[in-house]
């Protein structure tokens, strides 16, 4: 029984921590992304589930959903210009 409790607590802690870091924290060393909106669609981060984060040339960027990363990758400079 003790093992079950320990396992459940560990799973719970893992999920909480994954949740706390998914898209909301800053990737260390990268220039932080300060907007609360998706760099591609301007949708509010969090509106399409947890945001997705990536670093491009030392700049952290955030997306409302995974398909937006593909859009960004096709033309990163176009979207990065929004940060200026």
């Amino acid at each position: 029984m003790k093992n079950i409790i320990i396992t459940t607590t560990a799973v719970f802690a893992l999920l909480i921590s994954s949740c706390a870091t998914s898209g909301t924290g800053n990737v260390s060393g990268a220039k932080p992304y300060t907007s609360d909106k998706c760099i591609v669609t301007d949708n509010k981060l969090g509106s399409m589930g947890d945001p997705v984060t990536k670093v491009y040339n030392g700049q952290e960027v955030k997306f409302c959903c995974a398909p937006c990363v593909k859009k960004f990758d096709a033309n990163p400079e176009k979207y990065l210009s929004k940060l200026n």
Binding site: T41, D42, M48, C65, A66, P67, C68, K71
Partner: peptide
């Protein structure tokens, strides 16, 4: 199961 069509529509609208 994919958001691609949705995203295309969104890009067209903006």
């Amino acid at each position: 199961y994919t958001m691609d069509e949705m995203l295309e529509g969104a890009m067209a609208s903006m």
